[in-house]
Design a protein around this nucleic acid. Structure first.
Lengths: 194, 194, 194, 194
DNA sequence: CATGAATGAGGTTTCATTCAT
DNA sequence: AATGAATGAAACCTCATTCAT
């Protein structure tokens, strides 16, 4: 249980620092101080700053995906699956402000490698949604656009929520976004799903 | 015609470089080389790298806003105004790949000052949309969420388009996003507006 | 009369700027602006910044020496000559604050070449004093030390006067310094000389 | 013994370089090379070039003051205290050529902050002398001028000694300066003090 | 003579990374 | 495994000087 304990500690520190300072403003020194270790220790667990950032992002993505998977588990109705997936994702962001900061705000200009990674994750997530939508009877071509739009809409809403200092009612806003996309595909039993 | 020629040249070079490398990877040397001038020349026109980046972003924002204003000019129907605004914005991005890169992709982690600025612009743009929507009969509270969501959806779509190497049919995708939000608010004469 | 007019103008500007900013903080741009000409014009009259500074210092030294020579002209009594020399020098500094700044304060750390020049001037001036003192009956060996000390004392007093914002009564202080050195050599008719 | 070792090493290197090149001609690279370390190492111990210079000057001033204090310790006679103070100061300069260079020659045009500091130190030192002189029965007003003059005379003498390549007999010269000021105030038992 | 835009060498400073202890 | 002092490449920026107009 203590195995990997130190690495976890540093990752947690990195999350705090990256979320606060962004990738470039963050320094190894800052992370090491936050983790209460020496800068040299940092390099026992990570090859480089970039490696650490990618590891962190990976971990956070996995966490998000796990929550989504858990939310989908045992649900048969595709509309319900879709709904629960999105709610789970937003819930993760809502619960962990730093995580949301790192993934949605700080990552963007960070590094080509990160952008590539983030891009693949969003793509993967969209693919999930597309499949659910197709199962719901939406044409694949339309579903692809819709899924991306939906993701974008939610990311923007979470972004507003973050920048506004969490003043926005995130649950209500998420729900409204859901309604919008739901209606667009004539999923008439929106209410029943809800 | 030569008025402001050199500064414009450097700004164009900066656009190319920032779009390609992002804010932090871009160096003054790179920009100066692209503009075929010495690094010192850069500093004749800009106080600092940040100053240049902000000037570039400002210029691009103004360009986008101008196109939007032009598209809205003389249009009375709020739905039509909204539709044209969004189409104009997307059209600007479609026409100028670098501009889209800088504003939508590279800016994010660039600089606190830039983030503040970007944030204000998105807010201003959303405000426009909200007003149009309210005129269309949408409740303001709902319109605010919707406008942000809409912006997010479009940004994501343009992002996909950029990252996919402009493979996506941007016009079609934009149209689909429009349909989605339109239907969500029961704007029944969507087809007529279209 | 207009011949050299421009060069003089720039020298005057240089005096103002060097006196205010010191050698290193002063820029050609600053001097050119003060002289209301372009930086290129500066280089029509001076080979370099250093050249200009040295020319300025030279001019100021010549001015000081001229005043001293005028004060000594036609005076036979060596004690009187000495007294008048020093008073003339101090009077020049008192009348031209900028000149004093440049020569006594700003020059020091400026440049090896300037230090060499300043050093030679002080040496020359001391030589004058030594000769007068020897004529007064002071032993040469003693006179050399005394002359340097006297110069140092006066420079310090003028320095204090400058830094204090000219609050000190420079005439009175100079007189006291004179009394000190006078008495030291038993020049008993100090009062009559005075 | 190794405590503060590296910082001290760099300070010593800085002393050598500043003394040789002056503040502006000195570069971090030069100091680091002299200290046989990388330029980055310099910044582990000093915030900036200015910080280092000020720290050096501070250290040298403290050293000078300590020597003066030691020389005055347990001496009751004010004339003796004064005499010993000045001799101690000159002795410090005589023993450490570089120290004298930095404090008396190179500092002048270095930096506004340094000039301010140097100015305060000379003022403080003069104050000491003034008090001693007043105790000796000299009128305060006269003593103030005299103290400044005395300091100036000594600084000039040391300056001559430095520039002449230490050819001058500094002890003898200092003694002569002392005689001059002593006699000026009719301190009749000069010889006994001596 | 005069201009001032352009130049580019060179300085200060930062910080990811290494390595001897 | 842990440390943290040391490294040095590389970035930003300044400004004396040049030169085409």
């Amino acid at each position: 249980m203590d195995e990997g304990g130190r690495k976890e500690e540093i990752l947690r520190a990195a999350q705090t620092i990256f979320s606060q300072y962004g990738y470039h403003q963050a320094t190894i020194r800052l992370i090491a101080d936050q983790a209460q270790c020496a800068t040299g220790t940092f390099y026992l667990y990570f090859v480089s700053k970039q490696d650490c950032f990618l590891a962190l992002v990976e971990k956070l993505y996995i966490h998000v995906m796990e929550q989504i998977m858990r939310a989908r588990a045992g649900v048969g109705n595709p509309a319900e699956k879709l709904k629960r997936s999105l709610e789970a994702a937003v819930e993760v962001f809502r619960r962990d402000y730093e995580l949301a900061q790192v993934i949605l705000v700080r990552g963007a200009g960070a590094d080509p490698l990160f952008e590539e990674r983030m891009w693949r994750v969003r793509e993967a997530f969209s693919e999930f949604m597309v499949n659910d939508l197709v199962e719901c009877g939406v044409k694949r071509e339309t579903a692809v656009i819709g899924a991306h739009g939906w993701v974008g809409a939610l990311v923007e809403i979470v972004g507003v929520w973050i920048r506004d200092g969490q003043a926005l009612d995130l649950a209500k806003a998420t729900h409204e976004i859901q309604r919008i996309f739901w209606m667009a595909w004539g999923l008439n039993d929106f209410r029943s799903v809800d």
